[in-house]
Computed example of a mutant assay.
Amino acid sequence: MDTTNTNGILLVNLGTPNSTKVSDVRKYLRQFLMDERVIDKPYLLRKFVVECFILPTRPKASAEAYKSIWWEEGSPLLILSQRLQEALQKKLSTPVELGMRYGNPSAVTAISSLTKKVTNLKKIFLIPLYPHYAMSSYETAVIDVKNAIKKLKMDVELEIMPPYYQNEKYIDALLDSTKDFLSWDYDHILFSYHGIPERHLHKTDKTKKHCLQVDNCCQVASPAHEHCYRHQVTRTSEEFIKKANIPKDKYSISFQSRLGRDPWLTPYTDKEFTRLAESGVKKLLLLSPAFVSDCLETLEELCVEGKEIFEEAGGKELRVVPCLNENEVWVDTLASWCKEKGYN
């Protein structure tokens, strides 16, 4: 235990089931889908939809998907997040812990672990492992940590890393992780981001009159951009292609993992696989910058399902760039952010 340091660092990622058992997947999905920032409906309606329409069938299908990408040592997302935590800890003396928004280790568990490493914990630097702001990812992670601090009845200051979607060091880390793939003779680059319902953009629009209501809204300056997921993923892609010197007509953006019948951000990634292949794209390079750690959505939805859809539509080869994971430049970036804030 450190008797001199009063600071701690907390990394928070999405989460994962404890195993590929249907019961564990069902428990995980229930926690995830009952989050009011994921399915933002009144509690009773949300519970009815989740319990009566989703959980009776989805856990079994999801369990099979998890089995197809599960590692011998456990969940890829958890293992990769733990490796990131360990790599960051090697560069800092301030204790670093890892929490998950859903599943284990919870924010309560992670903060409790920090208190065992720091005698008199007074300040926590929270880094949500989400580059972009969305109520169903970044926002809910922050709220969960705040609730965990209240539950533990702690007198601790929480300092929060803001979304870093256009931070130069983050873009540099993306470029470094992609450099070997950029030398490939690809026809097109597709940036696939996790989708969100359009109504989430309206809810997080502080002006209530900009997002999806103004022509070319992501390019028109507005205070709404502070919390606009669509604007922020657009900026990530733009900054990346500018630094990589990629022609603007050689890339596009899409959104994956939609749920339900309400309108979600478009175009949809699965539809884009088909459209691009049918338009003559034979070699497709795919990036998923919304995820910093590989997970079910990248390893199964993109690498397996995406490849099948693209090839069935006439594409010849789909190459998926791994997430940042333990990329050295990414670890150095996290360490630099911590040190800039005084967490050495």
Rank of each mutant, 00 (worst) to 15 (best):
N5P: 03
L10I: 07
L11I: 02
N13E: 08
N13D: 10
T20G: 06
S23I: 08
V25H: 02
V25G: 00
Q31W: 08
F32C: 03
L33M: 01
L33R: 04
K41Y: 15
P42G: 07
Y43V: 14
L44T: 12
L45D: 04
L45T: 13
K47A: 13
T57A: 14
S62K: 10
W70D: 00
S75Q: 07
L77C: 00
S81C: 06
Q85D: 08
K90Y: 09
K91D: 12
L98I: 03
Y102G: 00
P105T: 02
I111H: 02
Y130Q: 09
P131V: 04
I143L: 15
A148Q: 05
I149S: 07
K150A: 14
K153R: 15
M154G: 05
E157T: 11
N167H: 14
L175H: 01
Y186V: 03
L190K: 01
F191L: 06
G195E: 05
E198Q: 14
R199I: 13
L201W: 06
H202R: 14
K203N: 13
T207C: 12
K209L: 11
Q213C: 11
V214K: 12
D215W: 14
A221E: 15
S222A: 12
A224H: 05
A224C: 11
H227I: 10
Y229Q: 04
T234R: 13
K242E: 11
A244W: 04
N245P: 03
I246G: 03
P247R: 09
S257G: 10
R258H: 11
Y268S: 10
K283G: 08
L287I: 04
V292C: 06
L296A: 02
L302T: 07
G306M: 05
K307W: 09
G314M: 08
G315A: 06
V320P: 07
V321R: 01
T333Y: 12
K341I: 08
Y343A: 00
